[in-house]
Design a protein around this nucleic acid. Structure first.
Length: 358
DNA sequence: TCTGGGGTCCTAGAGCTT
DNA sequence: TCTGAAGCTCTAGGACCC
């Protein structure tokens, strides 16, 4: 029989904003948006006061400004947030249990077999508050899914412990989007077949969901709604690296676009070399002015992190595509990592195709 | 003023090899 | 030598997350 799992999810409360408050206490009580400075920037996070105006993450800054002209803008300072996050994670590491860092402000811990996990987590939260003057919420359950939803349930400074059955019952009246992995598109499709809550999703048979959502997605939705989840707490290795940028004004000339790709390839190459990574698949991303997004990729015979190779391939992919409209975003990605210089024995089909394409 | 950046995972179709 | 099936890889796009 499998050992009982105990998983905790630690989620820092309004992390970026709380970090900013520590160095700018005068922002307390004010509507604040933390966002980039370009004309096309979006809101990274907003204070609770700004959220009362309907401002939320990922909203275009110009729209946020329209909703709340008096909002104070604070530029994003990722380097600083990263530094503070590093200190918080060092405290997490002192627990000496398997952990999976999800982002700067979230981490899962596997406390299976650990004596008194509730006490261990409340002690951790207290230590973070004492050392960094930052609050966090915690969820504890038998899986990452239960822990994650539990940590969100009573924010800020929440501390929720639930079994799978308790979670399924407690959140039955909530919308399906409460579950990580069920987003807006899936929620729309669920609504079309009369499912508006997790309880209604739980009530549907796997077969019904399979016929509506397919062989894999149907059973996945059924299991998630019932809070079944067995994914392990483990730090995954990176699968890809990319660099992309949205322009202040759309680009129309291919030569300008190629310059951008060359510059991005250099940046990406430096990043890959720093991390000792090399990949065989090189891809570009192009977003047109009508928001159509396309990707084009080519797999080369040997893993590479060479700027010239990445740049040459990316520019060839762009020329083969020949954007039919002005371009607002360009990006380069390298994936399918392997040891640098590790040749692949078979010729690659994509390579041949690309010669035709370019 | 019209909607970021950096990722992961899944699906489906096409082509190649065995 | 031809053919079909199965399995794999690659490509492209979509959904989702923080």
């Amino acid at each position: 029989m499998a050992a009982k799992r105990t998983i905790a999810h630690l989620d820092m409360d309004a992390f970026y904003f709380s970090v900013e408050l520590l160095r700018r206490p005068e922002l307390r009580g004010e509507p604040v948006i933390i966002a980039g400075t370009s004309p096309r920037a979006v809101v990274t996070t907003a204070s609770y006061e700004a959220r009362m105006f309907g401002i939320g993450s990922a909203m275009p800054v110009f729209q946020a400004r329209r909703r709340c002209p008096q909002a104070i803008s604070v530029p994003v300072d990722m380097a600083h947030y990263r530094e503070v996050s590093g200190r918080v994670m060092a405290l997490v590491d002192e627990l000496d249990v398997p952990r999976q860092r999800v982002s700067l402000d979230e981490v899962y811990l596997d406390l299976s077999g650990v004596r008194d996990p509730v006490w261990r987590m409340s002690t951790l939260v207290r230590r973070i508050a004492e050392a960094e003057r930052l609050d966090a919420s915690v969820g504890i359950g038998p899986s990452k899914l239960v822990a994650k939803v539990a940590s969100d349930a009573e924010k800020p400074r929440g501390f929720v412990v639930l079994s799978r059955e308790e979670a399924a019952k407690r959140f039955a009246s909530e919308p399906p989007t409460l579950i990580p992995g069920i987003g807006g598109r899936t929620a729309e499709r669920l609504e079309r077949i009369g499912i508006r809550t997790l309880g209604e999703l739980q009530a549907r048979s796997v077969d019904q969901l399979r016929s509506a959502f397919g062989e894999r997605h149907g059973p996945y939705l059924s299991a998630r709604a019932r809070f079944h989840c067995d994914s392990p707490v483990a730090e995954g290795e990176a699968k890809s690296r990319s660099v992309e940028s949205t322009f202040d004004r759309d680009l129309g000339r291919i030569i300008e676009m190629e310059e951008v790709l060359a510059h991005q390839s250099t940046r990406l190459s430096e990043e890959l070399r720093r991390r000792n990574l090399a990949g065989r698949t090189i891809a570009i991303k192009v977003k047109l002015d009508d928001f159509t997004t396309i990707t084009r990729s080519r797999t080369v015979a040997e893993p590479t992190n060479d700027a010239a190779t990445i740049s040459h391939t990316a520019r060839a992919l762009l020329r083969a595509y020949a954007p039919p409209r002005p371009v607002r975003l360009l990006g380069v990605r390298v994936a399918a990592f392997a040891a640098p210089g590790a040749a692949v024995s078979q010729p690659v089909r994509g390579e041949n195709l690309s010669l035709i394409a370019s």
